[in-house]
Write a protein that binds this DNA or RNA. Structure first.
Length: 493
RNA sequence: GGGUCGGUAGCUCAAUCGGUAGAGCAGUGGCCUUUUAAGCCAUUGGUUCCGGGUUCAAGUCCCGGCCGGCCUACCA
């Protein structure tokens, strides 16, 4: 294997073995007394900062030191143009033999695409107007032994993009921009909640009992205690314990894990925001959620209107539509008596709507299938879907004037559910009953510890959960949740 | 999990009816002191994902496997 090859005489090297060719260059650098890895470099400006130093009207600017990965290398005899990629983007450098010296230029010519180098020199503008550093000297700071993907087409193989994300980031600007946007979205969410005096906390990922959502958990084993744990599927129950403890505005942004299938919109580990505010209810969370998303969109992408690949435009400005779950259902099925129909007739009707529904489902689940399969994908504009059947969520308060529904909303944007919020259930007896109805289902366990906390008294509160990945999907126009997660889950190779 | 499409040089892609596996970029050797996918000349590079089978002959057809995309299922 080339990795274990001894340094060769350059004439012996198989010139098609790209690794061996570069390894030989590395060895010859070392033999010449240079250190191809540890040399430090004093960066004075990033590419963007440097370019800002040369105003339109000026031909020449100050001296700067820039450093980055060589992504373009155009050698033209006694002069070379190259481009360095740093965290802000690219900057061009121009290196002339008569300016850096014969010896230095001879070494310089041996650089490879992918090497990290620093360049010190004065800024100038080329005849085509590109701001460029005219090198006085260059420094190799790290040698690259592997070739970069093709410079024009970039990297398109999905598997390689996910498994070797670093290559995707080097060559695909879209991808770079999307992950920068993701980072600022998360920062903006934090800032917004900090400003509203929410306390940011961290709660356990390893839990004896998984609660707060209906999902199959991942199981793992803790050797020291010789017991099994689940990875958390939601943040809810621990954050509510903190409400009991008197932290009456708390939030957490963190990874949750659900042992379910992969899809364009599902990754088994994903990032969730949950926020709880005492002395408010789901209506308070409505305002909070809308303001939060508007704030984030405005600052992260600079607009409240987002064009979708489908051609239409999502308008996040102003107040958002509210619609009762039941009204949406009645509208979709086209008859007023839907909720009074026996299940068999409901099933018949769903067939007429062109969806397949499992006949073994409970009555409310048949209705919910209508919501998920017929209605949800049509809710492109932000819509708060309110007053959902109580069976769908055991953790919310029952609507005072309609005991069949709960005081919640599901915020839908871009045809998918983005954020649910509740008036949180704080009556320990009602909560226990709701849990008991679900025990026996595979995905539910009784969390006695949580009920004990509730019995100590939890203030009335609104709670909200927001799928960060899904927010990033529509804000950055990603085609797939995997394009918003740096290292999405793949089968181990 | 099911359906479906795909896997060819480091990367992006060709390869007709089953008949000598090619190109561009990258690499290597030259020329070239303002290039913009730089250009010009020459040139290296292949377990065609893996394993079987059919055939005089397989990248191509058949079977099995691995990995992936899309759709679907599961999914508070």
């Amino acid at each position: 294997m080339s990795e274990t090859q001894e340094p060769n005489d350059s004439t012996d090297i198989e010139t098609s073995d790209l690794f061996a060719v570069r390894k030989a260059k590395l060895d010859s650098l070392r033999e010449a007394g240079a250190n191809p890895y540890s040399a430090n470099f004093l960066q004075s400006h990033t590419s963007e900062q440097a370019k800002a130093l040369l105003p339109e009207e000026d031909e020449e600017g100050p001296e700067v030191s820039v450093v980055g990965r060589v992504v373009i290398f155009r050698l033209m005899g006694k002069a070379t143009f190259l481009k360095l990629l740093d965290r802000d983007g690219r900057i061009q450098a121009y290196v002339r033999r008569d300016e850096i010296g014969d010896e230095s230029y001879a070494e310089f010519k041996k650089l490879d695409l992918g090497d990290f180098i620093g360049v010190r020199g004065k800024l100038f503008r080329t005849k085509t107007g590109e701001i460029t550093v005219r090198a006085l000297e260059y420094t190799l700071v790290s040698k690259s032994l592997r070739p970069l993907p093709e410079k024009w087409h970039g990297l398109t193989d999905n598997e390689q993009i996910y498994r070797q994300r670093y290559l995707d980031l080097v060559v695909n600007e879209d991808s770079r921009d999307r992950f920068k946007a993701r980072s600022s979205i998360i920062r903006l969410v934090r800032e917004f909640l900090w400003d509203r005096e929410f306390l940011e906390v961290e709660t356990p990922m390893l839990q004896a009992v998984s609660g707060g959502a209906a999902a199959r958990p991942f199981r793992t084993h803790f050797n020291a205690l010789d017991c099994d744990f689940n990875l958390r599927i939601a943040l809810e129950l621990h954050l509510k314990r903190l409400l009991v403890g008197g932290f009456d505005r708390v939030f957490e942004i963190g990874r949750v894990f659900r042992n379910e299938g992969l899809s364009r919109r599902h990754n088994p580990e994903f990032t969730m925001l949950e926020a709880y505010q005492a002395y408010t209810d789901f209506r308070g969370m409505m305002e909070l959620t809308r303001s939060l998303i508007q704030h984030v969109a405005k600052k992260a992408i600079g607009t409240l209107t987002i064009e979708r690949p489908e051609g239409d435009v999502i308008d996040l400005s102003g107040e958002w539509r509210e619609a009762k779950y039941k009204d949406l259902i009645l509208e979709a099925v086209g008859r007023e008596d839907w909720f009074d129909l026996p299940k068999a007739e409901k099933l018949e009707k769903t067939k007429a709507l062109g969806i397949e529904v499992d006949p073994d489902l409970e009555d409310f689940e048949v209705t919910n299938d209508v919501f998920e399969k017929v209605i949800e994908h049509t809710l492109v504009q932000p819509t708060f879907v309110t007053h959902i059947p109580r069976e769908l969520c055991p953790l919310a308060k029952i609507t005072p004037d309609d005991p069949s529904t709960i005081d919640v909303f599901e915020l839908c944007i871009n045809g998918q559910e983005i954020a649910p919020a509740y008036s949180e259930q704080n009556d320990p007896f009602v909560q226990r009953e709701a849990f008991q109805r679900q025990v026996g289902e595979e995905t539910h366990e009784m969390d006695e510890d949580f009920l004990l906390a509730l019995e100590h008294g939890m203030p009335p509160a609104g709670g909200m959960g927001l799928g960060i990945d899904r927010l990033v999907i529509f804000l950055t126009k990603a085609a797939n949740i995997r394009d918003t997660i740096l290292f999405p889950t793949l089968r181990s190779s």
